[in-house]
């Protein structure tokens, strides 16, 4: 039961974050808007990963495996964007 309650709380937080990101999109523009909407997306996926995808119960290895690819993508993003920004 403990878990059910926490799952529902997480869901509630997720829906609140959704409302926040939609609201922010009407108020913020440009890089600030992008930063906020991506920040919220990372927050939401963090909640999902941590609670729904069991990372709170798993060991270090599984946590690295689950999050490693996300970190790896940063290589792609960093270098591709670096090229476009310095052309």
């Amino acid at each position: 039961m403990q878990k059910t309650v926490s799952f529902v709380f997480v869901w509630f937080a997720l829906v609140l974050l959704l409302a926040a990101t939609v609201t922010a999109s009407f108020m913020l523009k440009g890089p600030a808007g992008l930063a906020v909407s991506l920040g919220i997306a990372f927050g939401k996926s963090g909640l999902i990963y941590w609670h729904y995808m069991h990372l709170n119960e798993e060991e270090g290895l599984q946590r690295i495996a689950a999050l490693g690819a996300g970190a790896w993508l940063l290589i792609l993003f960093a270098f591709v964007c670096a090229d476009y920004l310095t052309r």
Binding site: T21, V22, S25, F26, G30, L34, S37, L38, I40, A41
Partner: peptide, 9 residues
């Protein structure tokens, strides 16, 4: 996908 596609402002 949602913010990147729908919420680009």
């Amino acid at each position: 996908l949602y913010p990147i596609l729908y919420l680009a402002r």
